[in-house]
Nucleic acid binder design. Structure first.
Length: 512
DNA sequence: CGGCCGACGGATATCCGTCGGCCGGTGCGATATT
């Protein structure tokens, strides 16, 4: 009888897809995930961005009894997703966050039993009052969106991510669905552990984006980089994103680009206020900008199908981050280009960031001693964090230390956790340094770029696109235009490009 | 890790080199103060 129920559910999934979302068929991967979810399994799904990850929990939301709880890393992402659901007429979708008026938050909690979808941050979810309300509610599905954040941020930057397993337990172990576009094997294991996934079904789609041509270009110094970038921007298709490691670089570059190319250029980073950020983001989405210089603050949840170029003015510290960032190009399947400029000095950024994530050993030791002597208190939290930052710790390092000391029982000495802290820091450092090494190896490798990361992800190289990478004969000069237009071997490239475009267009027609 | 800035000292009355220290990226929520 149970079996018949399940079959019924699966049939109804197709009906929901058509009636609510207006699609005839599930796309690759979606159907498998939905089946596993409806059958009550924990599921880990790695699907490329733009492949319709949200359908994977939205459709089950209509077939399971109770609330679908979606843990999301960004408030803007939650708002967007609620908005999307509203557009298809779903009224029982809400977000719960700190920007809301307390009254409104209360109202959402009061009618929680009538909701179908609730979007929430890991921080909010950890609040005892919120959790108490959720404990009285039936949670049908526990979704972790952008699940790579668990591993990428949970260990230092946003420690609340590491409490999701505990919260899941308090909610009575609802089935869990973790989705992301990029997670190498180590990250997958890390996520599975942090979320306490059991008997997990995995759907692993390729991380490769074959329509994005890859180029790594080594240059002497930053001024050469700026020159080359400006040339590149005036030759290739736009809009484009230029990723920088530091905020001041985004501003300086934007200025330079505007000056030398006249392109509509803006910058975006986490130091700007929320209104400006929204404004720039919307301008970019609406096609009012050609170039956006930004830090890694920009990108998550950005769904603009026609970004043609992603430049790395400095490279990120992990392969996952790199693939996330270049993956924002050409979601529509047309030809895109990713260019990474490299000088040896650029390494200082990622290695500096790794250093900043943790307190140094002197501070660690000193703080534990002072806590034991009563010269320092862990509470109130903000005072503790401020004191540490006053002594030169980064905000992340301070918060890391707070997470370590907050749970030390009264009868124990703080110094007793010294070795444990040292071990954690050492291990995390090794992991991050290894990630960085992989990224450096990618840059310095003299084999196919695509083959390199596919092997890192333990994927077999499926099909090699014609416009693959600089190692496979893709001419950087054809894009950058270092020579005069006449003597460039350009026309052939363009022809090839056109031919490919046509093919792609035909291909997508065929799919429909 | 390395670029950048300010301090400092030496040789000369303003400049020049060197050295040490600092800084650098992601966002949530809550709370107190203008």
């Amino acid at each position: 009888m149970e079996l018949r129920d399940e079959t019924q559910k699966l049939k109804r999934a197709h009906v929901i897809l058509k009636e609510k979302f207006g699609y005839e068929q599930f796309r690759a991967g979606q159907w498998q995930v939905i089946q596993d979810v409806l059958n009550g399994h924990d599921v880990f799904a790695m699907m490329p961005t733009g492949s319709g990850k949200s359908i994977c929990y939205e459709v089950p939301g209509y077939l399971m009894e109770g609330l679908v709880l979606i843990i999301s890393p960004l408030l803007s992402l939650m708002e967007d997703q609620v908005h999307q659901l509203r557009k298809i007429g779903e009224k029982q979708a809400r977000a719960l966050n700190g920007l809301m008026h307390p009254q409104e938050r209360k109202r959402v909690l009061q009618k929680i039993n009538t909701l179908r979808f609730l979007f929430i941050s890991p921080e909010m979810l950890r609040q005892p009052q919120i959790l108490a309300v959720l404990q009285r509610t039936k949670v049908s599905l526990f979704v972790v969106d952008e699940a790579h954040c668990v591993s990428q941020w949970g260990h230092d930057f946003r420690p609340d991510y590491l409490y999701l397993a505990q919260i899941k337990a308090k909610l009575g172990y609802p089935p869990c669905l973790a989705v992301t576009a990029t997670a190498d094997e180590r990250v997958r294991v890390d996520i599975a552990r942090a979320l306490d996934l059991r008997d997990v079904r995995q759907l692993l789609m390729s991380v490769d984006r074959s329509n994005i041509a890859l180029i790594v270009k080594k240059v002497m110094d930053n001024s050469e980089k700026v020159d080359q970038l400006i040339q590149l921007l005036s030759k290739v298709r736009l809009p484009g994103i230029v990723y920088c490691a530091a905020r001041d670089w985004t501003e300086r570059l934007a200025e330079q680009i505007r000056l030398h190319t006249g392109l509509r250029t803006a910058y975006y980073h986490g130091g700007m206020d929320a209104v400006d950020r929204r404004k720039i983001q919307n301008q970019f989405l609406d096609g009012e900008l050609d170039v956006l210089c930004c830090t890694n603050a920009f990108g998550m949840g950005i769904n603009k199908p026609d970004i043609r170029l992603v430049v790395h003015f400095q490279f990120p510290g992990t392969m996952n981050a790199y693939l996330q960032e270049i993956g924002r190009a050409s979601r529509d399947g047309k030809q895109g280009l990713a260019v990474l400029y490299y000088t040896e000095q650029d390494e200082r950024y990622p290695s500096g960031f790794i250093d900043m994530n943790f307190p140094d050993d002197t501070m660690l030791h000193q703080v534990l001693v002072e806590l034991d002597q009563g010269l320092l208190q862990t509470e109130p939290k903000d005072n503790f964090l401020e004191t540490l930052q006053g002594r030169g710790a980064s905000e992340t390092a301070a918060r890391f230390l707070y997470e370590q000391v907050r749970a030390v029982p009264r009868e124990k000495r703080f110094l007793s956790i010294l070795d444990e802290c040292r071990r954690i820091i050492r291990e995390r450092r090794i992991i991050q340094m290894n990630d960085l090494k992989v990224m450096k190896d990618y840059i310095n490798s003299n084999t196919c770029r695509r083959a390199f990361y596919q092997s890192f992800y333990k994927e077999k190289q499926q099909h090699k696109p014609k416009l693959c990478c600089d190692q496979c004969g893709l001419q950087f000069d054809a894009f950058s235009g270092e020579e005069s237009p006449e003597d460039r071997p350009h026309s052939e490239q363009i022809l090839e490009w056109r031919a490919r475009l046509t093919l792609l267009l035909k291909g997508s027609d065929h799919e429909k």
